[in-house]
Structure formats: structure tokens, C-alpha cells
Amino acid sequence: MIRVSVDTAPIALSQEVAALEERGAGAVATFTGVVRGEGGVTALELEHYPGMTEAVLCDLAEAATERWGLLGVTIVHRVGRMTPGERIVFVGTAAGHRREALDACAYLIDRLKTDAPFWKREQRGDAAAWVEARESDSAAAGRWD
């Protein structure tokens, strides 16, 4: 079962994890990304490409399901304005055993960072700046080719 959501609402972590556990798999792995407050960041704004974003995330979830034989995949990405300490992304996988669940979870967050059309803008007081893409993210995504 695949669940993909791109929403301005806060991510309900315990509900998302519980839904994966209900898939009846032996192993559930999760990744949660949290907005960092370092460097004086006071808020983060997330823009995305409606329609394409959801399609890309579904494609990634389907690819992971096929590659690792998953019983469940959940990808939830928050968009809009959020503040340090808030959850920005949740990826969860349910599989028969830990190795499949953990590898698929790492694959999904690595590929999401380079393949899904999201853009971050950091707010520092009154000043705002778009975040630049990092070469290390491309390298992390490339290891799954």
C-alpha cells in the first residue's frame, strides 16, 4: 500500500507510523526530517510543483516497493511555512525484515531530495534566501543507481 501526501498541515508522526505497523509486516523503518534552526533561521518556506510532485513521489514509492518487496510505503512532505523544530518530511517503509525496510527508507529520502520538485526558502528575521542545491545530495542519490 502506498500513501503519498503533500500538505501544509503538520505531520502526524504517530498516526503515520501506526498505519505502517498495521500493514502486518515484521519491520517498519522511518525517517523524519526536522527544520533546522542553525544559522539564525527563523522560518522555512517550501514551494513545490503541484501535480508533478505527487507523481514523482508515487513513482519513487512504486520503484521502492518493487525493488525491496515492501508491504507499505508512506511519504509525507509538508509545504508552506514552518518553523525550526517542525517536521518537514516523513518517509516510512514496511517490509518482512529490517534490511529491506531500512534500505528502502534510505533510498526514498535520498532520491526524494534530488528527484522531487520542492524548493526551500530560509527566513532569517526580515531577510529571505533560497537554499542552494548541494552536490552531496546528488552523490547520495547516485549510490542507488
Binding site: H77, P117, K120
Partner: peptide, 9 residues
Amino acid sequence: AIFPPVTGG
């Protein structure tokens, strides 16, 4: 669509 390199996650 035209845009900068993506920065999600």
C-alpha cells in the same frame, strides 16, 4: 516549467 535545482527533503 523552468526552475532552479530542487532542494526538498
